[in-house]
Nucleic acid binder design. Structure first.
Lengths: 190, 190, 190, 190
DNA sequence: AATGAATGAGCATTCATTCAT
DNA sequence: TATGAATGAATGCTCATTCAT
């Protein structure tokens, strides 16, 4: 059985993703978690704290999903593709968290800072791999950080339909791969 | 002299971009516009309506900025680059509006629908051009809509530093062009 | 017509005196003032602030009532009696404020500090007069401050029935004077 | 070892004296008593009941302290002085209870009634002694009840520093005696 | 047209009390 | 007996909206 703390976190994740932090109410969170309103305060000291923990949990779960895909004995393109695929699957699985983690979240200043931090970590991960690809002659000579940003944008764009579309299942992984292929084609050493 | 209606819209644009729709208050909007709180209601029937109009104005202003760049007697790549450049300049100029228009805006359901509509229009514009590029042999054979999505993601990613960074001026157009070049390299017919 | 701010202050004074600060609610205050709950917040920033202002107003009104009775060309006993009489009348008139100003008010720490300050001012006033009485040979040699405390206790004790009794009018000024007479008899130089 | 019931009562006494009835919480009481929150309800049916019993215990403890000082074979003044001394020592020892018993306690209506009852009992005790003193020619002819009220006020005033001052030990019994001496001087038959 | 004043509906948070163990 | 967990009712405070001028 799932702990009450987790039930609250899950409900909050859904609601924050659906309506934003300010518009979601603690009462709704409680109701969706199937508990009384004040019980929420047994587990979290404030609404802000709920958000902080929701974000933290989502972030950890995201980074977990990326793990183990970094040091494989194959081309950088394959590694990046594997990471991209993990990203895709994560978004498909945790749509709500993914929306929270999407680049733009306007509600609360401190939340934005937090999310920008995550963005930086992802960019760092990508650019490090890209630098390696360049060194190994796999990619042509480009600014690695800039290329990393571009890749991040491509991933986000290709996953966007998962966030908003009603027919998530229609969004295929195969299409996703064809999308990032454009990026890779542009990156290859001629 | 700028009309009172516009003063309200400008103030609202800033505030919504800064703190999100829910967290911004009508009183703040009025104060920033330099007018009394109830005067706002002479021009807009509700807070929601203010947001709708803010969005509408931002959207129009964005589409205006794109106009005139579509039917030029040159390569599709040049046209798309021109559009991208217009996008870049718009974001630099209207940071606040740009944030509102950014793909993810989580606050209110109907706002999201509206923004998705804009996204679709941009994608349609891009994919139509890309289709033309393919037909003319400039681009290789790809799903035009998918490529359009990718391009959109690239544009957004490359403009993201303008939205959050403190040193906006450090973000150069030249870097932006090198970024989309990756996309075009991946699109060229071999 | 009495200002809304004053209506709130009056209602608050009554309620705080009746039930104490914590037990009184802002809604009750508003209802008793004949206004909406949130209107209260147009005039006072918080419940604490209401209490602070209530206390301040009560204190000023009390000190006003004492004024002009200090420098009369007669015996110190007469002056002190006049002050005592003013105290008596004030309590009769402003029962609620008087309860707030009574020595013991247990609710909020900062309020207690404030009230202790008032107590000190009253003691200072009394002891200065008593010192004068001693110097002029009217009173016997006693610690002036201690005597002042005693006098204050006597005044409070004799006014207590006004604070709690249902039949306030039965409490006569004449009885009050007979009461403080005991104090003065104990003070006279033999 | 002190019983759990008493531990609760002691904790409550402290807290009620420190912050007033409304502002004190059952959880704090439990914590200070070193027990779980719901255990409190094994011994007392409600927060109100805790207060009632706290008051009752304080009152009994106060009256106990007065006992045995009433029927001594000496002057009434000596008896009253002995009672006053007992009062002084009680306040010094049980500062918290003393604050609760102080004449003014504003928080809850029924508590006030109770405390007024105690006040009446003390006044009755005093006035009976004073009547005796008058009958025996020790005191001059005054309204015994009024004199009792005055005496009570004097005792309270002289003990007030014990309730609020930081330097309780600086408040001497000797000073206290000099204070009530003023009362007695005023009472003596010439 | 413009606005200060007023307010009800709503929200985050607290707390006395109950329940399950 | 003892208690951690749970919660509904209440409370201070906010804010979009209306009203009177």
């Amino acid at each position: 059985m799932v702990s009450k703390r987790e039930r609250i976190l899950n409900a909050a994740e859904e609601l924050f993703a659906e309506k934003g932090f300010s518009a979601a109410t603690v009462e709704e969170v409680a109701k969706r978690a199937g508990i009384g309103k004040s019980t929420v305060y047994e587990y979290f000291s404030s609404k802000d704290e709920i958000f902080r923990q929701t974000l933290k949990a989502g972030l950890e779960s995201y980074l977990d999903a990326m793990k183990g895909r970094l040091k494989q004995p194959c081309s950088v393109r394959d590694v990046l593709t594997a990471i991209g695929t993990a990203h895709f699957n994560f978004v498909k699985e945790h749509t709500f968290t993914a929306r929270l983690l999407a680049d733009e979240y306007n509600d609360t200043p401190w939340a934005r800072q937090w999310l920008l931090g995550l963005r930086e970590r992802r960019i760092a991960m990508f650019s490090s791999l890209i630098r390696q690809g360049i060194a190994e002659g796999e990619f042509r000579l480009v600014d690695p950080r800039m290329a990393a940003e571009v890749l991040l944008g491509v991933l986000n764009a290709l996953c966007a339909p998962l966030l908003n579309g009603k027919n998530k299942d229609a969004v295929s992984l195969e299409r996703f791969h064809r999308g990032i292929a454009i990026f890779f084609e542009g990156m290859l050493a001629k």
